Amino acid sequence: MTSNPVLVGDGHLPLRDVVAAELRRLILDGSLRPGERLVEDRLAQQLGVSRNPIREAMRVLEAEGFLDVVSRRGAFVAKLSARQADDLFHVRLALEPLGARLAASVEEPETAALERAWEILELVRDSGPGQDLDVLSTLHTELHSLIFEMTRNDYLIAIAIPMVKRGQWLLRQSAPLQDPAAWTEHHGLIEAIAAGDADLAEAAARHHVLSVRSTLRPRLDPAD
């Protein structure tokens, strides 16, 4: 499936961030395919901006792992191999249980973040099967980002949010996010954080990561 890029030159956010968000969306929905070379002039024309914000946005996406920049060859949409996916899950197993524990341990919980987390889960539940995969993957990324933001640990947030976005790409390609059952484990995780039960939150996060990994592994080509 392909989608037409939108003109982003009139956005109100910093232009680099607007362009990065649009390029990220095009990568996530498959309009820009793994291994495809990105041409600055062409993207600038498509998105209605100059080359500078395109170049700055590419640096952002390279840092997030969405692009591979090769000297004298240019920027290419990264390919996520089975080995890289496994590496990503090793990092998730280290960071997500820690994030859940710290989020549950804060003295004054982030009420607004918790409310938004429940709102996301209700949106997914009420929508039923077959909801747009782009919407679901965005909500999934927001939910996991909220958990890290609830830790109030700037160092962890800086490390974890790019990992969450990278994970969105993998989930968008391979995981059954359109299946409501894929979201059920999040309820227990958010409940544990809301209750301030750090041990239970940590265990729920670890179980969730292991469950997703076991679901994804058969879908990945071991030869990649």
Rank of each mutant, 00 (worst) to 15 (best):
T141I: 01
E107I: 09
E149F: 02
A94H: 13
R101V: 02
V70I: 13
V69M: 06
L80N: 00
S71V: 10
L189N: 05
R92F: 11
E149S: 03
G188T: 05
V91A: 11
D126K: 14
F89K: 11
L121T: 05
I190T: 02
H144R: 12
M150E: 05
R92S: 03
G130E: 06
L67P: 04
Q131C: 01
A100K: 08
A117F: 03
A75M: 04
S81K: 09
L95F: 05
S81F: 11
Q178Y: 07
S105Q: 14
S145Q: 11
V135F: 15
D126Y: 06
I147C: 04
Q173D: 10
L102H: 07
H187K: 11
L143T: 05
T151E: 07
A182K: 00
A94T: 13
L93N: 06
L80T: 09
L93F: 04
R116H: 13
L102M: 15
V69K: 11
L98P: 02
R172G: 04
W118Y: 14
A78G: 00
A113F: 10
H187F: 02
E122C: 02
D87H: 10
R125C: 00
E122I: 00
D179R: 03
R172A: 10
I147A: 03
L102F: 10
G188N: 03
R125N: 06
H140Y: 10
E191Y: 05
A113D: 08
D86K: 12
L121S: 01
G99Q: 04
E115V: 07
A192M: 09
R125P: 01
A160N: 02
I157T: 13
L146G: 04
W118F: 14
V70S: 07
P176D: 14
V91S: 08
A195G: 12
G74P: 08
G99L: 04
Q131K: 10
E107K: 11
D134G: 13
L98A: 12
A75C: 07
G99A: 14
L136Q: 02
V164I: 15
T111K: 13
P129W: 12
L102P: 09
H144M: 10
K79R: 15
I157Q: 08
I120W: 07
H90V: 12
A112Y: 05
P109W: 00
A78I: 07
E119S: 15
Q168S: 14
T184K: 12
R72G: 02
V91Q: 12
P97Y: 11
F148E: 07
S81P: 10
V106W: 02
L143D: 01
A195S: 12
D68L: 03
P97D: 07
L171P: 00
H90L: 15
S137F: 00
A158Y: 08
D132E: 15
D68V: 06
S105T: 09
L171C: 04
A103E: 04
S71P: 06
H90Q: 15
L88D: 10
L156D: 09
Q173F: 05
A192E: 02
A117W: 03
P162H: 11
L156V: 10
L98H: 07
A117D: 02
W118Q: 06
L80H: 07
N153V: 03
E119M: 11
E122V: 04
E115K: 12
R83F: 09
Q168G: 11
G128M: 08
T138E: 13
A194I: 03
